[in-house]
Design a protein around this nucleic acid. Structure first.
Length: 717
DNA sequence: ATAGGGTTAG
């Protein structure tokens, strides 16, 4: 029974398996061939594109209003061709042999300028020292208008263009930059050219002041100050940091419409915008279109691609990036390696991450804290204890750099791998150190270590120690501790920890509620259940009413369905399946299996159990890997019920039946395989543990049929 | 941070 908590609540486990739903790589053609095709399609489509209907109306739009926006050029592609598979593309190309691309007389329209924006050469300024000191004085000055105005009176040299620029460049935070910029405007000493706007915008970007940046750009447009590539890339990257991706696209479009060609910096900033929008197709089209324009992408562009494929869990995409780097002749730098390592982790390829890391070290690069953090995380999540420990050893013997993020990641890895002693050692190291003192994340990781290992006393000691060390508890630490106390059935301690946590400012989230729900399924009805209810009532009263509703025999299925829908809609996506898993466990522990079946059905209806069943002509299988123990039993009963109906109707059945619980790579979450195995024995079901695959139970059709006959003789006739 | 783009913990 103890295992049901960890199975139902092992969010890492859930997240690992959610990669099943990730989009497959859409281009399975080899890269070279693919690129030719894509480009072919693009050229054809761009010549067919009508001029842009929405001509820009502002001051800058004058000279080149006929430029179609890039997205207009891309639209027909993404709508008509790119979403189709290669099988669909193939005949289309061959059926139109007269496509324009064949005609070499028509030059391809370039999409980016291969020349970077030229910077004005800075000449030596003999007043540099004074001006630096003056900037510093402004930076240290009280941020009020009066104080700043007073300080400006003491400017050591006349604010010529170059002097003013020098000061503007050194001011922070953005309020002071903007103040100085506006002051310059009122002085009317010289016209404020593009560079003054650009420098001010850069400072505003540090403060993520997108609206102010946009106001400044509008001002530029209104007063006829030219917007250049630096202006646009600053606006676009600020919009991106403020998560205003549509704004970023909008400004990029505007740039094309006004006839300004992006250079490679703006171009890769925009690639990143489309990547963040998860528009993989558009990114690749832009990338290859840029390549066809003669662009030699630099490491930054490859980082953008790599991260995008990592987010999509797309290993083929990552391989494509590596191949492209090779064919373009770009050596990956540290940032590229770090990005690709992380991407490999997200794509679920720990082995390839390891080889990439080895390649990186062999190439003479020294891993940074970030490299090691990425790798440690990958090994921990993959439960690769041996590699994790080896890496740790090399970190020490090579004296590779450590920071406190890496320390905390190592601690989390220890929690993932169940390395209690190592975690304790690390934690002590951190306490001894000056610059890596344990913070709330370190404590959370330790609570996770002790919590997963069932070390209640040690976990409680940490909990008491935290306020003494001045470290605040966070909701994840609270969840780990409550889970641990619940498994140990220390309900009174649990209640105390919960209420103290609330007093310490913890705001319960859905994961904590899921944890309380799972504890509920372990409790005896009566006093214990009431105590947990009281906690859950404070965190999520609707869940309490729903659990009570489940026990009302007269509550209709439609009522349950509607109430569950309302609850799930208010629950974060990653906690929905754990919720239903726990609710099913609660129903089973209260001996209302009909409700458990209803909930499993509803969970399936609401898409929480995708791929539960798999059928081929040879084998039917049941995938229980993301289910709690109670949900797994329920799903198995449901499955057997359905199969026995097929038997009754004498319809075709496959040779083999298999149920997969997964081996449970987590040291503390191996419950499901074992519990399910013993459950099968109790039922005398003919499923046998597969010899080649752990966590896989197999039965033959004949055995299953005779089991049905022995179990329900009345139906068997 | 010296007018612009990329990596950064659960």
């Amino acid at each position: 029974m103890a295992a049901s908590v960890s199975t139902a609540l092992d969010f890492h486990f859930t997240i690992t398996h959610s990669s099943d739903t990730k989009k497959p790589f859409l281009f399975s053609l080899p890269p070279r061939q693919q690129s030719t095709k894509r480009f072919t399609i693009l050229c054809k489509s761009s010549t067919n594109t009508k001029s842009s209907p929405d001509v820009a109306t502002d001051a800058e739009a004058g000279p080149l209003p006929q430029n179609p926006s890039l997205s207009d050029q891309l639209k027909p592609l993404s709508l008509n061709l790119l979403s189709k598979t290669k099988e669909n593309q193939q005949p289309q190309l061959h059926s139109k042999p007269n496509s324009t691309w064949v005609n070499p007389s028509r030059p391809k329209r370039s999409v980016l300028s291969l020349q970077r924006h030229k910077r004005s050469s800075r000449s030596y300024n003999p007043q540099l020292r004074d001006l630096k000191l003056f900037s510093q004085k402004l930076n240290d000055c009280e941020p009020s208008e009066i104080a700043l105005s007073a300080a400006l009176q003491e400017i050591p040299h006349p604010p010529t263009r170059d002097n003013a620029l020098l000061i503007l460049n050194r001011l922070k935070p953005w309020q002071k930059t903007l103040f100085f910029f506006n002051w310059l405007k009122t002085q009317n000493l010289f016209p404020l050219e593009t560079i003054f706007y650009n420098v001010t915008m850069k400072s505003l970007r540090f403060g993520r002041e997108y609206q102010l940046i946009e106001d400044l750009s509008r001002e530029m447009i209104d007063t006829g100050v030219e917007l250049d590539n630096i202006t646009y890339s600053t606006i676009i990257s600020c919009a991106k940091r403020c998560n205003l991706l549509d704004k970023a696209v909008e400004w990029f479009e505007r740039m094309y419409k006004t006839g300004l060609m992006p250079d490679e910096i703006t171009y890769s900033a925009v690639l990143d915008v489309y990547a963040k929008l998860e528009k993989v197709e558009e990114v690749l089209t832009l990338y290859e279109r840029g390549r066809a324009s003669g662009w030699k992408p630099d490491p930054v562009a490859f980082c953008v691609l790599g991260r995008m494929f990592g987010e999509a869990g797309d290993y083929d995409g990552i391989r494509y990036v590596l191949q492209e780097m090779k064919s373009v002749g770009v050596e990956p730098n540290l940032v590229v390696y770090n990005t690709l390592l992380e991407a490999m982790g997200k794509a679920g390829k720990p082995g390839l991450a390891r080889s990439l890391f080895e390649e990186m070290v062999a190439s003479g690069l020294t891993p940074t804290e970030k490299t090691l953090t990425a790798l440690v995380k990958i090994y921990g999540k993959a439960r690769w204890s041996r590699d994790a420990l080896q890496l740790w050893e090399s970190m020490r013997s090579n004296k590779w750099p450590m920071d406190f993020i890496l320390y905390n990641t190592l601690l989390s890895m220890c929690a993932d791998l169940g390395l209690e002693e190592e975690a304790e050692k690390l934690f002590d190291d951190m306490k001894q150190s000056e610059e890596c003192r344990p913070d709330s994340w370190s404590y959370t990781a330790m609570l996770n270590v002790y919590g997963s290992g069932g070390k209640v006393e040690k976990a409680m000691e940490l909990f008491e120690e935290m306020p003494e060390s001045g470290v605040e508890l966070n909701v994840m630490g609270c969840t780990c501790l409550i889970q641990c106390l619940g498994r140990a059935r220390k309900i009174d301690d649990l209640v105390r920890v919960f209420s103290v946590s609330i007093k310490r400012g913890i705001v319960p989230d859905d994961r904590l509620c899921g944890c309380l729900l799972s504890v509920l399924s372990l409790c005896e009805e009566g006093e214990e259940v009431d105590k947990v209810f009281a906690c859950l009532e404070k965190a999520n009263p609707k869940l309490v009413s729903f659990v009570k509703l489940l026990g009302h025999g007269e509550a209709s299925f439609d009522k349950i369905k509607e109430e569950l829908r309302l609850i799930l809609n208010e629950t974060v996506v990653e906690a929905r399946r754990p919720f239903v898993n726990c609710l099913i466990d609660v129903c089973r522990s209260r001996n209302i299996p009909e409700r458990a079946h209803e909930l499993l059905y509803l969970g399936t209806l609401y898409g929480l159990y995708p791929g539960l069943h798999n059928k081929t002509a040879q084998e039917w299988s049941l995938n229980l890997r993301s289910l709690s123990v109670g949900a797994a039993y329920t799903a198995f009963e449901e499955w057997m019920g359905a199969v026995s109906k097929v038997v009754e109707r004498q319809e075709a059945l496959p040779e083999l039946f298999s149920a997969h619980t997964g081996a449970g790579t987590h040291k503390f979450a191996q419950g499901l395989a074992n519990e399910f195995g013993s459950h099968l024995k109790e039922l005398a079901a003919p499923f046998k543990q597969s010899e080649e695959k752990a966590g896989c139970y197999v039965a033959t059709r004949e055995d299953l049929i005779s089991w049905f006959q022995s179990r329900v003789p009345s139906v068997a006739c």
